[in-house]
Design a protein around this nucleic acid. Structure first.
Lengths: 233, 233
DNA sequence: TAGTGGTCTAGACCACGGT
DNA sequence: CCGTGGTCTAGACCACTAG
């Protein structure tokens, strides 16, 4: 097996189990070299992966510090969703996860490699207080994702399911935002007038798996619930 | 300076200028080694950066392939408009920076402390290729900002000015997104039909100065240039 | 088969942070 | 001062892709 991957996974596990807590220092690069009989290049490659996945950050003169892993990841949240979790929010599957064709609807270019593999797709309608506020379509390559189609999502969360059951972490996102007029389908699903302004969000979530990205096309009725977004550098 | 940075920037420039087009192969790693008198480690580091920034992807056995990069108004990130969009940009000041009242228009709540101090405001129209695409209003507390009103912005960039002249850095942001219908003012300034869909972004930039946040209200015509946003853990 | 990128070794010198 | 990470050299062998 690849050395840097073995070491990365070993450290990642220890972080997830709390053996290294937030703010703790991981073994220094030289320490890792000695302990695993590797060179610094390999140790650094392992640590670079952990940085990419958001588990640590490095500080010159100090070491590799375990980071708090951000939950939101620049993910756009419908305002009121988080506060309303549990009571007021409902998610309706319009199409359950299944193997379907890659859609022309996806705005952000899908890589050739992904296009060549099968595609998992699902469609959901998000409601707040009984009113539909967001239509969500998701696509991703069906690689190493055994069981995703057969089992329900963990806590109804797709990302949680990917992390827990498939060890895939979100490492970044790319999005395009457009204000558009609702067409027939959108207006009837979101129960708004034909031609009303809707926020169209095209999203690509990058993951720790190099051949898996998650592509989403979202349509939001922002009249009552604007879409929110927070960053912290 | 740093070799890998110099090489990365050189390649990046050549991609941006179209010397390497989409789908083209960059020089191979060995070629870079020979051309710049470096080792493969350094060449790979340079290419790794280009991957991270989304300019290329590598294919084993083939080479480094230039990727499609989407043209959009890179906005919600901290880079700022000019750097994100590129060359074709023009900015027109509708109202030059001056002391004005805090506006009711600001959607994200302004802290009491800020409201008590004077307010700097300015309004700009951003154009790409001669067409107006975004109306921008900005407000911030006039604390420790001597000279901001008297001098032009550094490279026409507000953020750069804050950083260079006032040592204030952006540390985070909070935003709300709405799809709305253009009113009289917006439609005439952006040269679109009354009632057309526009993207309304309410932004709060947090800074390294605890008592200074930047509040912005943006109206974007996303027909030609969607608003883009990248996030990396 | 020749060329590409992927992994890895075994060193070196530097800048930074805390003691 | 010493240990940390940051950069860089000069090699090696491997897996993949194309002609």
């Amino acid at each position: 097996m690849l050395k840097y991957l073995a070491i990365k996974n070993s450290l990642k596990q220890q972080i997830q189990q709390g053996i290294y807590g937030i703010g703790d220092l991981l073994p220094s690069e030289n320490e890792l070299c000695a302990r695993f009989s590797i060179t610094r290049t390999t140790a650094r490659k392992a640590l670079d992966e952990l940085i990419r996945e958001g588990f640590i950050e490095k500080k010159q003169g100090i070491g590799s510090v375990v980071r708090e892993r951000r939950q939101s990841l620049g993910l756009l949240n419908v305002k009121g969703f988080s506060e309303a979790v549990g009571h007021n929010v409902k998610t309706i599957f319009l199409k359950k996860p299944a193997i379907r064709d890659w859609s022309e609807e996806i705005k952000i270019p899908v890589s050739e490699k992904e296009k060549k593999s099968a595609c998992i797709h699902f469609e959901r309608l998000r409601c707040v207080g009984g009113e539909p506020v967001m239509l969500e379509n998701n696509w991703l390559a069906a690689r190493d994702l055994d069981g995703l189609l057969r089992h329900d999502f963990v806590d109804a969360s797709f990302f949680k399911t990917l992390s827990r059951n498939h060890l895939i972490e979100i490492t970044g996102s790319e999005s395009e935002l457009r204000a558009e007029n609702a067409d027939e389908k959108i207006s009837s699903l979101l129960k708004i007038k034909r031609g009303a302004s809707v926020l169209h969000i095209s999203l690509k979530f990058k993951t720790s798996h190099p051949d898996i990205n998650i592509y989403s096309e979202l349509y939001c009725n922002t009249k009552k619930y604007p879409v929110g977004n927070n960053y912290q550098i």
